[in-house]
Design a protein around this nucleic acid. Structure first.
Lengths: 233, 233
DNA sequence: TCCGATAAACTGGCTAACCAGCTTCTTATG
DNA sequence: CATAAGAAGCTGGTTAGCCAGTTTATCGGA
């Protein structure tokens, strides 16, 4: 296990080293937006790493929109200037793994918005989906079973109904980590679950009634425990 | 160009088809958290696709926390139950590319929070970094040059100072797309840039004074144009 | 029958070779 | 000398095969 972590860190540090070398290269050669980077083969030779490593690093920078690979042609500097390039690479290199508190804090922020947008924009189909996930949650809780997953699926349904694809994606990104941490730290216990049914119902009704303010208020009530976890501990 | 897009869509649809097949497999075989998936080779044979395609699909599901690959051992179902698994895969399959409006809407939401948190939590080092990016922006604008990048670097510096790693990551994710779209649609023109200096200054001073409410208010002023773009068009 | 040891098979990850298509240089023709 | 045609060489992407480590099966001793 320890070895696995070591190699993982090792890989990550290799990747970051390559990224910083690419940055240096861009600076040194004064590459401007649209200019072509040296080929992957040359970079791997120059940096004395495998081509796979170079590709990984390039793909990471491509994910953040800094580079653009075009098949059978080359890798190009994206349409953002040198300063932004340097600043963003600096940030990417310093990126930490998100801590749980920051996850929860972000989730609360996102959901207080998605629930408002959902109330404004929900279609009949959204409503049907919400109802469905709500019922699944109810049934699980009333059977005395653990319902963390159904809980979060309801919240994901809200995000979908918000009609904002970016927030929907972000919610999808953080949900798995939220689930595993909830189960690890036992943030939700059984007592809260039965209360949760009523709270979910209130949120659902507010969205159905297309009342954004009420929906947000009800969501705030629902997040009371989370608030405490986030700001009192 | 058209061909490239076609193959890209094709690849994506292949990947999604594999993902839905993996979901079916998990359901059919009643795989529970911790259970092992069939090997990549078997899956590629069974689905009649290349192993690369299978690996890509698995890596995507791993990104969303649904699977976990362990070297020389196998790919395992993550510690979330069947229901959440199904719901999330459904969502992932339906994920659309984010539209610009949803990006801006999300950015506004995030930044109104990060600026408050930055006012509360900023260290002296954060302040120094903010000042630095602020000066870079000023100089560029006063020289009559385009300063979209420096603008956003200032905002990224705020995200960093917020001390919330998740929000910082999200800001990093959407910034490149924001930049390219700004330049494409000419959301910011030169006239606003000079006003922007004062607005940036106000935000900086509020963060320096550790006044979260003022900081948020000043950010709102700064986003006035963006608001209009987001809600009036 | 049980248990430990050893080997064979299988795992995800990685590498080197190959592919189709774009670029660039050469060359032949007007 | 200009230009167009063609060939040679790069390009990122893909794939079959190899690797080290894990897992499972087999077998022998008690």
């Amino acid at each position: 296990m320890k070895l696995e972590i070591l190699t993982k860190n090792d890989n990550l540090s290799v990747q970051n080293r390559i990224i910083s070398k690419i940055r240096d290269l861009i600076n040194y050669k004064n590459l401007e937006p649209g200019d072509k980077l040296p080929s992957e083969r040359m970079l791997s030779e120059k940096f004395e790493v495998t081509r796979s490593n170079v590709r990984e690093a390039i793909q990471k920078l491509e994910f953040y929109g800094l580079l653009k690979s075009i098949p059978q042609s080359g890798t190009f500097v994206a349409n953002i200037g040198v300063i932004a390039m340097n600043g963003m690479i600096e940030d990417i290199l310093r990126l930490e793994d998100p801590d749980f508190k920051s996850l929860v804090e972000t989730r609360i922020l996102l959901e207080l918005k998605t629930v408002k947008l959902a109330a404004l924009r929900r279609t009949e189909e959204d409503l049907k989906h919400l109802k469905h996930t709500l019922e699944a949650y109810k049934n699980k809780v009333l059977n005395g079973e653990d319902a963390v997953q159904e809980d979060l699926l309801f919240h994901l349904a809200i995000a979908k109904a918000s009609g904002n694809s970016t927030m929907n994606t972000f919610m999808l990104t953080i949900t798995p980590e939220i689930i595993t941490n909830f189960e690890k730290y036992h943030v939700c216990d059984k007592g809260q679950a039965t209360i949760g049914i009523q709270e979910h119902n209130d949120i659902y009704e507010a969205i159905k009634a297309q009342d954004p303010k009420l929906a947000k208020a009800k969501m705030k009530v629902h997040f009371k425990v989370l608030y405490q976890y986030c700001y009192n501990i």
